[in-house]
Simulated scan of single mutants.
Amino acid sequence: MRRSRLARARELQAAVAALERSHGPDDPHTLRTRIALAEACREAYEYEDPYQQEWDDAGTAELAAAVAGLARTLGPEHPETLVHRRTLAVWRSAPFDDASAAELARIAEAQERVAGPAHPDTLETWDHVLFRARGPGRAALQERIRRGWRQVIADRARDLGPDAPQTSAARRRLAALCRDAGRDEEARTLRAEVVAASARVAAGRVRSLGPAHPDAVAARMAHARHVRWHGDADGAVRLLRQIAADQHRLRGPDDPGTLNTLIEVVSWTYRPDARDAGLLLERAYPVPGVTRAALAGLRYALLCAYVEAGREDDALALFARYPLAGDDDHLDEAEPPTPPVSGAGPAGR
């Protein structure tokens, strides 16, 4: 577990206690902070953490108390209450859990009454029901969700534009649903539409701002990610290399944007060359503006290359030569990360 995550949970626990004293347990600020505490508890641990169940239980108790408060203050079928009721039901459930599926179906039916059958919140909840559903009704539920996302796409294309990020996000959701339902041709068509939309957005930004403007680069990077998502990993890397070449030409070889893009190229390349990755890390490490996430990813890629080549000593030396903020964030055995004791009361249990 990371010290920063534990500190965040402790900080939110203290904030909830202070807000309860000053504002009361059902004040909106208290409820929002309690929800943040619940999420922090669920995110505090890492894979195979021995305290995982205790942290999950603490987070569930806090969210249950927050949901009870939202139901009292906003009503049990207020959109915000329903969204958090869904999260609570998911946290309490397991795959193919009939009781949780029934609770999620009740929440989805309430969301249909409040927001309509083709609202993203409603469809998200039905998707959770589908994940837990068994029997002959599953295909009908898939079709119901598919029709809903088709309507969301049509509404967003009409109101926001066919190339709007929200429209593409809905297409991605529907593509995943179609893939899972075995509708491969429809899924491929939707993915192609997303790629084409991102290409048009990127081209428009390049025309209006220039190829190396940060907003244009962000749109071009988004297009490359969509190309990769569509299954063309080599094409995505070629697009990244084009972005890096434009940045190199217009902003310089040591510009942090140029270096961040070059690091992405390495991260997206299968089995990158260790020598090239090492030279890039040496060059990028001291430059302000190169992100910590980019440097950590490049360091990890180089570590994997060294290990694969049998250069374990060089791999271990990377952390001493290129230390990054957060490297010492993990707790040691003398610091047991016991979860906070819930102050949620009976409603949270």
Rank of each mutant, 00 (worst) to 15 (best):
R171Y: 02
A197I: 00
D163Y: 03
R188E: 15
D234F: 09
P337D: 02
L104V: 08
P76T: 09
H226I: 10
C304W: 05
Q111D: 13
P337K: 00
G24H: 03
G252W: 11
W229N: 15
A61M: 12
A101G: 04
H78K: 09
A65S: 15
L74T: 02
R3N: 04
Q13N: 15
E77G: 02
H230E: 14
H248I: 03
G75S: 13
P25N: 12
F131Y: 10
V195W: 00
S93V: 04
A284P: 03
V194H: 00
A139E: 13
R188L: 15
L280T: 05
A157W: 02
D56L: 13
T269L: 11
P79M: 07
E48D: 14
D97G: 03
A196Y: 08
E312M: 12
L70E: 05
A115D: 11
A294L: 05
S168A: 13
A196K: 07
A68F: 02
R249V: 01
P25R: 00
L88W: 03
T167W: 01
P25C: 07
P211I: 02
M221F: 01
A9Q: 07
R349A: 10
D254K: 10
H128F: 12
E46P: 06
E11S: 13
D49T: 07
A133Q: 12
L130R: 01
E312K: 07
S267K: 11
